[in-house]
């Protein structure tokens, strides 16, 4: 297993390098920060000095070289908008997003595993139809719309939840609820399908013949076999949230990494964009390793060498 993690890490290093190069050059295609940070009638001398101070007058390859050298010291440059090191800015926002994912995903997984499993027990039954109907709505309703309606109903009309920002646990209720909706809708369908397959297997029939009860058949025999596709989809969704729940963070004014990235792109804050992409990429890489380890724990036939 140790050898496997080492090999995977090595492979990821190459992907990370490609990503860094791509982000560095793509960000610079958006235009010059000088246009945004200086008054429209700023003189060419002022512009030149602004660019000179930030190093934007040097050829691109010099800028890139400087960026790489900085990277080795974990120095990703200074944020234009905050006038602080970009790494600090990103590491300040990231825990909020991580927290959001850490609260949302367990809720998503528990809800969809229970709902999907029960739906699969009697395909075509009343519970199955109801679950399929509701999960389809959940999977297909746009996030921003639910977020705005949620604010309108619970914050404006009933005044039981705050509209935006952070601070109290109550501030987390609406963002988490909105974030939960879509992944749950999708995952219920995945769980249902893979559980129907597992429940129609010969080992389930054998378990019935041995006198094993329905609950153990669903949650002990079928579930562990049906989990692999569920883990795949759930990890994808978790990576999506970690990458920045952009819409939810923006609507609820949540200071997470998604909001930070959007703001930084708008403000051409290259240093922050680069740092944010690198940190989220690292997080996604760690999630993938964890998923591979989980596969091996769930299914003894999977062994990495």
């Amino acid at each position: 297993m140790g050898g496997f993690i080492f090999k995977r890490s090595l492979q990821s290093v190459f992907s990370l390098i490609a990503l860094i190069v791509l982000v560095f050059f793509l960000a610079r295609l958006t235009g010059s920060p000088a246009d945004l940070y200086l008054p429209q009638d700023a003189s060419p001398e002022v512009r030149f000095q602004f660019n000179e101070r930030l190093g934007f007058n040097d050829p691109l390859y010099v800028q890139f070289g400087r960026f790489l050298v900085g990277l080795l010291h974990f120095d990703m440059g200074e944020s234009l908008q905050f006038s602080r090191p970009a790494v600090d800015v990103v590491l300040n926002a990231f825990p909020t997003t991580l927290m959001l994912a850490a609260i949302t995903m367990p809720i998503v997984i528990i809800l969809s595993v229970i709902t999907g499993s029960l739906a699969a027990f009697r395909p075509g039954g009343v519970f199955d139809r109801l679950a399929s109907f509701i999960s389809l709505i959940g999977a297909s309703t746009p996030n921003f719309w639910v977020a705005i309606v949620g604010v309108l109903v619970f914050a404006v009309t009933f005044r039981i939840l705050p509209t935006s920002g952070t601070g109290t646990p109550l501030h987390w209720v609406l963002p988490v609820a909105v974030l939960t909706l879509r992944p749950t809708g999708v995952l219920v369908q995945v769980v249902r399908t893979s559980m129907i397959t597992a429940l129609s297997s010969a080992y389930v029939k054998t378990a019935k013949a041995r006198g094993v009860g329905s609950r153990a058949i669903i949650f002990v025999h079928a579930l562990r076999n049906g989990l692999l596709p569920v883990i795949t989809v759930a990890s994808d969704q978790a990576a999506g949230i970690v990458n920045g729940a952009v819409i939810v963070e923006t609507v609820f004014g949540f200071p997470g990494i998604g909001k930070l990235m959007i703001d930084s792109v708008m403000l051409r804050d290259f240093a922050v964009i680069q740092a944010a992409v690198l940190v989220t990429a690292l997080a996604v890489f760690i999630i993938n390793i964890l998923v591979d380890i989980t596969y091996a724990l769930v299914d003894p036939r999977i062994r990495y060498s």
Partner: peptide
């Protein structure tokens, strides 16, 4: 399983792999 029990054709499929 207690009074009447049964075995099946394909023992690989009939045993839970995990």
């Amino acid at each position: 399983g207690k009074n009447i029990s049964m075995i099946f054709q394909d023992p690989l499929a009939a045993l839970n792999p995990v």
